[in-house]
Design a protein around this nucleic acid. Structure first.
Lengths: 108, 108
DNA sequence: CATGTATATACGTCTTAGTGTATATTGGAA
DNA sequence: TTCCAATATACACTAAGACGTATATACATG
């Protein structure tokens, strides 16, 4: 799991952008207008999202249309999925807890 | 969706802690030892994780055993799930793209 | 090629967050 | 109560990142 994805999501402004782009691709000026970000701010966060592989760009004339990339969503989904049995079980694995205590004891 | 969860996950050291705790609850000294973090560093990141609701503490004598909380996993799962149809479809919604362009045009 | 529109980047500033060291707190045992 | 083990916190320092302003680049059109 690549936590650049999480880094990208962990910033409020970027999260807003992502939630907006979930409705569909948008050019920069529209993202700016709808989220009330000035243009450089929008571009900079889009750059970070693009570097993290969260969004992709399609040039359309002078405009650059940004769209979400499915990969990070699939990554997160797979990560969550791979541990599903554990967290769906509410982590109440008392046995592993005791095992942990045992290791700590051995260390002394 | 609460991106405090993402903030908690987005830091490499904390992510390591989470991956360790996925194997089962652990007391602080064991987390320190296994991840080669000094003790204050471990405690501080655990504090952040606890504040974000990602981990829970159970005092056991002098030791404090940390365990993952299922809630953030369920939250992330639900978030991903709620948009599954969109990202599984690879976001290729050209119609919404055109709709976006239209809005931009209306603005002028 | 000159101009306007759309977007990206450079730069200085400020804030946030992580780190290491030292110290405080908590609980058990002698 | 005194001592030790385990953990938490305070503080000063540093680095990363976000912001606003100014400027550069890209493309279309006349």
């Amino acid at each position: 799991m690549d936590f650049n994805t999480f880094t990208a999501l962990a910033e409020p402004n970027r999260f807003q952008i992502i939630e907006l782009l979930l409705k569909g691709p948008r050019p920069v000026n529209e993202i700016s207008r709808l989220l009330k970000f000035d243009q450089p701010k929008t571009s900079k966060h889009l750059r970070i999202l693009a570097d993290a592989g969260v969004v992709e760009v399609k040039p359309m004339a002078q405009k650059r249309v940004y769209a979400l990339s499915p990969k990070p969503f699939k990554d997160i989904n797979q990560w969550i999925e791979s541990y599903r049995q554990i967290w769906e079980n509410n982590f109440d694995r008392l046995d592993t807890l005791l095992e942990g205590m045992q290791e700590a004891h051995d260390q002394k």
